[in-house]
């Protein structure tokens, strides 16, 4: 399943406004996603820009109907490429993840809504990385199980299980925090 971009012609969406519209709509979600993967805003900017470069070179008919899914897939692959090149891959277990997230200062005061948001985001940050990713793709980016499966190269069943497990844990921990 190769979808290597062709640079031999100018794609239709380069002139049709689709590109500008897609960039405007998807830049922030992609940047957030890439930043989450890379932990670095600047590298994430590069990855997202590279993703859009590939997007404009892509044959629009090949991604018709699932352009956003395609963008996230390419963005994810590019992010992992960057990590590989920088030799930043190593084992990272859940305990370490919790140690990192525990260091975050707690908000001092906030409105109830902001507190709820902050509490949920903290709980999400404590999930295993694989669950964090699918939860964000589902609830932040609105992808279906099937689309998430394509993006992450997991089976639909695996995606469903990860989301179910994450939601169950979030429900329990969120309820425990509420008075």
């Amino acid at each position: 399943m190769s979808s290597s971009p062709s640079n031999s012609r100018v794609p239709e969406h380069a002139d049709s406004g689709l590109f500008e519209r897609t960039v405007a709509e998807q830049r922030a979600p992609l940047l957030r996603y890439a930043t989450r993967l890379l932990g670095d805003r600047e590298r994430a900017e590069d990855v997202v820009q590279d993703t859009f470069v590939r997007f404009i070179a892509q044959n629009p008919t090949a991604i018709d109907g699932h352009a956003v899914e395609w963008l996230f897939t390419v963005c994810r692959n590019r992010a992992f490429d960057v990590m590989r090149k920088e030799g930043r891959m190593k084992r990272f277990d859940e305990g370490d993840l919790e140690r990192v997230t525990d260091a975050q200062p707690r908000p001092g005061r906030a409105l109830e809504a902001a507190e709820t948001q902050a509490a949920l985001l903290r709980l999400i940050d404590r999930l295993p990385r694989s669950q964090q990713e699918v939860v964000r793709l589902k609830f932040q980016n609105g992808f279906s199980y099937q689309e998430i499966a394509h993006i992450t190269r997991k089976s639909i069943g695996n995606v469903g299980f990860l989301i179910h497990t994450a939601v169950a844990r979030l429900r329990t921990e969120f309820a425990a925090q509420r008075p």
Binding site: T35, R41, R88, Q104, L120, R136
Partner: peptide, 30 residues
């Protein structure tokens, strides 16, 4: 809960993504 998650994540700042987690993938085999 799903509605709350959507709302919470909709406003999540991009900087928080860089600030909150290690950039390292959780599993090499992922």
């Amino acid at each position: 809960l799903a509605a709350q998650l959507r709302q919470a994540l909709a406003d999540e700042p991009i900087e928080a993504a860089a600030d909150a987690v290690s950039p390292l993938p959780s599993r090499l085999d992922q």
